[in-house]
């Protein structure tokens, strides 16, 4: 098969559906595929997805009270059996991962999750997934149909097609799974106030910071620089000194800032995978053999408690 006949995109998040349609268009370079989107939502969601220029929309208008949105997987499975898509693209959110795994189990295949790049070749689809905490990339070819992949947010453009022709909209009845959990309560998490991805400058803390009180020192530097404060995983998940959205690494943020200053960061691959796209990397670490120095543009092998005040002063006089 040179070109997939039918591509199905699935996400609980309407904007992510837009991105997945962008990804589906890349797979449909020859323009012979039909792209269909599954929308779990009301008419306004359907209208929004229609504006992305999709061929067909399958609408699951209501997930019954007490159900998780992931319970649509059985409805999806039925659709997959009838529609026989060659490729299914799922948004790589927590919900997407659960839907993906449930479908993969029922279809007896392996989903390739958090796909970073993919291409359709004459012998099938090849996709890249990071392994070993970002230390390596694996190129894989799924051997079973359909191809099931998940794609994270922010990798493909949402394209609103002006005067998009109205897609065919088919309403799917919700199929209740036999075994299910009961959603008792849901609470919104406070909105994320940090945006590391778009920060121009980032000051990042590692295990070299001895005490939580010392964060104040770092805040001074960040203020002088107009930088966002970030950290390595142990500082947020182990010690809880900083919120999870401030940590950089394989399962955290991947930054693209002009300047990254690592303070007491040793440079383990789990972390540095998140800073490869930074323009200039500065490292301060007491240990001259810390791996971060090899991956930095400028390094100072000294105690960060001596470097910090000197650096703040030097920047103030710039």
């Amino acid at each position: 098969m040179i070109n997939p006949q039918r591509i199905l995109v699935v996400s609980e998040d309407v904007n992510l559906i837009g991105e997945l349609i962008g990804a589906a268009r890349r797979l449909n370079s020859e323009g012979r595929s039909v792209i269909a989107a599954v929308v779990a939502g009301d008419q306004s969601a359907v209208r929004r997805v229609a504006s992305f220029g999709v061929d067909q929309i399958y609408q699951i208008s209501q997930v019954p009270e007490g159900h998780l949105v992931e319970d649509i997987f059985l409805t999806l499975l039925e659709l997959i059996h009838q529609y026989e898509p060659a490729v299914i693209l799922i948004g790589a959110t927590t919900t997407g991962r659960l839907i993906c795994g449930r479908l993969a189990a029922r279809l007896d295949l392996s989903a390739i999750t958090d796909v970073r790049a993919f291409d359709w070749h004459k012998d099938g689809l090849k996709a890249r997934h990071m392994i070993f905490a970002g230390g390596a990339e694996r190129l894989e070819r799924p051997l079973r149909m359909p191809v099931l992949m998940s794609i994270a947010r922010g990798q493909h453009e949402v394209e609103v097609v002006p005067n998009a022709t109205s897609p065919e909209v088919v309403t799917l009845p919700f199929i209740t799974p036999q075994k299910r959990v009961v959603l008792l309560e849901r609470k919104d998490l406070p909105p994320v106030s940090v945006n590391l991805v778009d920060a121009k400058r980032v000051v990042c803390l590692g295990r070299g910071i001895a005490r939580q009180e010392d964060l104040a020192l770092v805040e001074n530097l960040a203020k002088e620089l107009g930088a966002e404060i970030a950290c390595t995983r142990p500082l947020s998940e182990g010690l809880g000194w900083l919120p999870r959205e401030r940590y950089i690494g394989i399962s955290g943020a991947h930054i693209r800032s002009d300047l990254y200053i690592g303070l007491g960061v040793s440079g383990q691959v789990q972390h540095t995978v998140g800073i490869t796209d930074a323009k200039v990397i500065v490292a301060v670490n007491r240990d001259p053999d810390a791996p971060i120095f090899k991956q930095a543009d400028y390094g100072i092998a000294a105690d960060l408690y001596q470097v910090l005040p000197a650096l703040i002063q030097a920047i103030q006089t710039v």
Binding site: K126, G135, L143, G299
Partner: peptide, 22 residues
Amino acid sequence: APSVEILAVKAPPRTARKAILL
């Protein structure tokens, strides 16, 4: 039976850094 064929495992491309120790 394998469900996926592994074609290659490679290090991701890394940005070249100056590595100047001051």
